[in-house]
Design a protein around this nucleic acid. Structure first.
Lengths: 360, 360
DNA sequence: TTGTACGCGTTATCAG
DNA sequence: CTGATAACGCGTACAA
């Protein structure tokens, strides 16, 4: 069923049908209503290929996620929680959200090229950006509206949104430091994504700001999974000088850490302080003891992405100058039992920095 | 950059370019190579809209997932684990996977209509089928190749794939029964998906086959989330006659149950036997004690979906008769510590059914 | 206010 | 083996 059939049935021209359906003003109300009724009655909907070909626009916004062989495709559920806000925002402008899944056997750079060259979308959101990310160079060059979810050193100016890793690191270290911890470990993931570098660097500066040096032996890099966290636990137990606290970048890793610790009779919040991050809204709260972590509104984050994408797309259509945005998304500390322990002050490893009030 | 530009640059006609790129035989090897080289050099890729319009086929297969307000969009990560096999299978036939996310503010039936009417895909996989699912009626009527991931009572004959809920229920009940449990609870979800009915019914029959009646007071229906499992724990504790075992349909609920139990000093596998399902490959293994659950190859499952979808699509293109398939996907028991406890035989609540060998 | 006709980029048919 | 040309379904400038 195409526009010709509908027009013939109504004894009008296809031009009139098209105008009526697209909400143009130059069509009588009576005719418009007839057309709309008939379209509904026959279940007519314009063929998207024809429409795209003619208008040069697809009405689709892509969100690309990358499978990761190491972590067995966990953590991607993280993205699910933002699709609702994103979808709602785009829908208000008549845009559709489609998710492109780049499998383990596909290369992310060529995958992006395919999507863009074939003109599948009007805009694209990429995630899991790496420190050097050729997708960004390509997209800038292709002049396609896009937003990077995650910072990168690649490319020129472009819009991006990222979580506040610096803020999380600062708050985590401050919390642990204020409770007397001086030997603090950091766990990151083996993924080739930029946030590992950002988080680690931020932890390092936060420690340095307090006169502490981050021991390389206390930086653990494992896969983003329960299994990875379990191995982090093994590393901790194998330490000659065990840390009294650890900041861990991903909550599923915290779960594995909990498991390893419990196997040797250790408990987070009693024998070692643990601070997590936030890769799933509820997960950490149901650990025992509850995991200290950081909350954020994924739905609002998705909406931000959608709103800004709409701006970028309309700017391009109007040949307007492009207002790039750079957004650091705030996250709020949710204290849990895993970081409740206080350190005896005498055990400080940084005696030279211990001031008067700590001795009091 | 379109096919005309490429043809002009090569001093050949657009027809020749098209033939060369589409691997037709009626083009000389020399010309084909020139075209391919030029296409690569200029980064030319056919415009999908033009191609779709002409050929009437999009080369896309959709996978539709439905957001669920109640469970805060958890559990959808389940699907992620099958996309790899699905994607790989489709890619071998030159088909692309696109994921359609039906948000909480969209109605699933109208969402499917939109996708189909606008001709966005050559085939569609729907998931989270409900007992009565109008999407199936619609898709059958639209004559579009589709597979339902999940059984439904709706529609006529069509292809579907579903997990072996009956097998899981049977094995779960058998395991618990053989260890002396006679008062066994079942936890399902509040979602309007068919597997709740299937699982519950299968548990009921498995119990009946052993002379046990499933007490309605021992059927708990909560949201598919840690919070839901937590509430299941509350229900159990509030029971006048507490069950000694529970079969629970989803692993994130098991996590919440663990949490509630630990709050009152109870431990799975010691104070109550717990058998889970499998919504995430690793989750249950890192609970303490490890959760008895069922494993399956999600990648293979995805591949099955892809392979069958390819069959359906080519059958339609060749006007061949459609070989529908109905597949129950097997799952394997992975015993964990959560179900290790043995019940003392004297406590059986079903004395009239206790046979000689149990008294021995 | 409505009808006509062109072209978006591609593939397929047919003639050479 | 190759080139010219007709569709595919739609939106829109232009004519009526």
């Amino acid at each position: 069923l195409n526009i010709h059939d509908l027009a013939r049935h109504l004894n009008v021209s296809i031009g009139t049908v098209s105008r009526a359906l697209n909400g143009r003003t130059d069509v009588s109300d009576k005719t418009r209503q007839r057309v709309l009724d008939a379209a509904k009655a026959f279940g007519y909907s314009p063929n998207q290929s024809g429409r795209s070909l003619r208008s040069g626009t697809t009405g689709m916004v892509g969100f690309m996620i990358i499978a990761n062989r190491e972590r067995a495709i966990r953590g991607e559920s993280f993205f699910m929680t933002l699709f609702d806000g994103l979808q709602a925002s785009l829908a208000e402008q008549g845009l559709d959200l489609v998710i492109y899944y780049c499998g383990t056997d596909q290369h992310q750079d060529t995958y992006v090229r395919r999507i863009i060259e074939r003109r599948l979308v009007d805009g694209l959101i990429i995630s899991q950006t790496s420190k050097i990310d050729h997708r960004i160079d390509y997209l800038i060059n292709a002049k396609l509206p896009f937003i990077a979810f995650g910072r990168s050193d690649s490319g020129g100016d472009h819009s991006w949104l990222d979580l506040d890793f610096e803020g999380v690191a600062e708050q985590s270290i401050e919390l642990l430091y204020s409770q007397g911890h001086r030997r603090i470990a950091v766990a990151t993931t083996t993924d080739d994504v930029n946030f590992n570098h950002i988080y680690l660097a931020a932890c390092r500066s936060a420690l340095a700001a307090r006169g502490l040096h981050l021991d390389d032996k206390l930086v653990f890099c494992e896969s983003m999974s329960e299994a990875g966290g379990y191995r982090v636990g093994e590393h901790i137990l194998a330490c000659k000088e065990r840390p009294s606290a650890i900041a861990i970048i991903e909550n599923s890793m915290a779960i594995g850490l909990y498991t390893k610790l419990s196997e040797v009779g250790m408990m987070p919040g009693r024998d070692i302080a643990v601070v997590g991050f936030d890769q799933s809204p509820t997960q950490g709260l149901f650990l025992k003891p509850s995991l200290t972590q950081f909350s954020l509104s994924m739905s609002a984050l998705g909406r931000w992405l959608g709103d800004h994408m709409v701006t970028l797309i309309s700017a391009k259509q109007n040949n307007a100058s492009v207002p790039f945005e750079h957004k650091i998304w705030p996250m709020d500390l949710v204290p849990g039992g895993s970081s409740e322990m206080q350190m005896p002050l005498s055990h400080s490893h940084e005696c030279e920095h211990v001031g008067v009030k700590e001795r009091a």
